[in-house]
Design a protein around this nucleic acid. Structure first.
Lengths: 170, 170
DNA sequence: GTTTTATGTCAGCCTTGTTGACATTGCTAG
DNA sequence: CTAGCAATGTCAACAAGGCTGACATAAAAC
């Protein structure tokens, strides 16, 4: 039976969504969408002399108040030298505070200061506005599919971290 | 009526998928997924002394045989100096051919050589394998949603370019 | 014939990733 | 208690790949 373009059965029948052309579309969509995804925060960051790396650090420190440097390294997947360069400027500029651990005094626990929270909100608002518009335009079903595919695209380690983050909530 | 978490109505009712928490999940999913998305090609490129920028150029030259430099610049969204650095090495290494335009002799039309096509396939295979697995695991409905959301997330200019690309097919 | 367009190139700067080496502090196991 | 490992910070050097600004050439367009 003929199947309309984009149509598809339940499981493993024609799998029209797995043709080379469909895969290429998916790949290009990721490329163009990621560009848009980062563009608004990037503009704000540039005004303040920060880069995308600062945004990532700020985001995950906000997300997990009091996280340790090691944990942040694992989430971001960069070297400690690379993270440290960014972290140092954020601490010097008074956006991030680093407190010595109470149980283990080797650890440093990271927190956003008042000023850090202000920038976080500004970046977050910009990025969330775009994502919210996209989600609203696409609808709940599409959003569910979006997250399912993205999750399946992660490396297993990162998927675990991601899921751990989202389970615990804030 | 009570609605389960993640559940939602058709249109603009509770909009549980637009809460801050949901938006944050979407944002983090993009971050982690994009990391996975680029990791396989990155490994291959590194072996050959190329970077992600080379991959992007190769991809879009393959996608649009004979495209001009200006067109490629617009798609990639970088400066000509940045693109030129990459393009020059690809031409020197014999992966890309640059032919003077016939109608307009100022233009250069770009093509992949035999060797360029070989690398393109290798990169493409690696990236497509991951996307294919993710698509297969998620199912056709999720894939449709995935693309809908990504498309809504692009800047309008880029969305137009993206749609033009996918309409014309290869 | 002047101006605009498409392209290439040089030089220099920035962010952000990398490796390697080394120091400090504090926890932990023997 | 001491040796070793862990968590962190730091210095130096390098690379990729963005950016700006300036300048050159050839061809098209007006």
């Amino acid at each position: 039976m003929a199947q309309g373009p984009g149509g598809s059965g339940q499981h493993g029948e024609t799998l029209l969504f797995l043709t080379d052309e469909q895969l290429r579309k998916g790949i290009e969509a990721m490329f163009f969408a990621y560009k848009g995804f980062t563009s608004d925060p990037d503009r704000i960051l540039e005004e303040r002399g920060y880069g995308r790396a600062h945004h990532r650090a700020i985001h995950f420190i906000h997300r997990s108040h009091g996280t340790t440097v090691n944990n942040l390294l694992a989430i971001l997947g960069v070297t400690k030298q690379s993270l440290n360069r960014v972290l140092r400027t954020l601490i010097e500029d008074g956006l991030v505070e680093s407190r010595v651990g109470t149980r283990d005094k080797r650890e440093r626990h990271l927190f956003l200061t008042e000023r850090g929270l202000v920038l976080e909100r500004e970046l977050s608002d910009a990025q969330q506005a775009r994502v919210r518009d996209a989600f609203r335009a696409a609808g709940p079903g599409a959003v569910a599919g979006f997250r399912t595919v993205l999750e399946a695209m992660m490396d297993p380690d990162m998927r675990r971290r991601y899921q751990r983050l989202t389970e615990n909530g804030r």
